[in-house]
Amino acid sequence: MIQVLIIDSNPYTRTLLVERLTSMAHCVVQAYESSTQLKVSALPTAHTVVVLNHHTRNDSPAEFLTQLKAHSPQYYIVVITSPGVQKRSMVALREAEKIDSIFEKPIDLEVLAQRIDKQVESFREIQQLTTDHLNLLRFLPTGALRRIFLDLTPGQAEVFDMVVMFTDIRNSSRWIMETSARDYFAKLHTLLGEQARLIRLYDGMVIKTTGDGLLAVFAGSARCHLALKCALAIQRAAQSETLPVGVGITDGLMLAGILGTQDHLHIDVIGVQVHLAARLCNKAQAGEILAAQSVIEKGHIRFANAPLAEAISVRGFDTPVNCTRIPPQF
């Protein structure tokens, strides 16, 4: 709803304005006898229509209107005035962009209502676009990765030094057999939603869901530390849900870019380290984090239960990979 403020010192004309404007859709109308009843700094800054019916015997509204526009440039300010000197002073205010529209008395109420209705519609469109924009931003990468979207060409990619983390909920096949698809989806949504919240909390970014898990990346100099802390937090959260998770983490150079067609785009990360993290995730036991040794060395985390260093054979890699198994820490 869009707020419409009417200011008119004359009870009769105020009544006429209120009666007409309250009949408009998507509006909440409030009427005031004087601008002194309004504390400008306490007014909302959101899109608002202000209708001031200025009477010759009132004090000049110039200062009030100037304050109002300074408080929120998003206000649409309409002044109704008599012709002559009064109107000329309002024209000067309009030229100074302190007010938006002038109606000369006597007015056609329908024309005024149409103008305000049009403005209300415009404000509603802006509000909707703002909501859409904020929603779409949630699909975009955060931090340095966002620069990929400066060039929305499918196939366009950049090299980043990042930590990549895969998570996977264990025993999900048995779980889906024991429940309905709808219940499974609702539970999955809750679990992955919590994982995504934790990833964001530790400055990571979810690239995509992978069925029963997530693929996330962490950038910046503290990425290994943050990724490990995040993985531990995910394990704690999973423990409380009695649905254990396996986690695989690696660190290194990878390509982040845009895949798809001009009609459907999505961001993805590609590279050896991504493959390795996925394999480590598969090899992690329930409740375990399996991380590349370099991640542990750079992460500087003190674990309650000692991790176990191990060279692990990974499909696709010629030699065993130095890793660390981090057992549940709770």
């Binding site: 004309t13 010759t56 000197v85 008395k105």
Partner: peptide
């Protein structure tokens, strides 16, 4: 102006 002020509408 005062006369006009009281005649908001046509």
């Amino acid at each position: 102006s005062h006369i006009i002020d009281q005649s908001l509408i046509y």
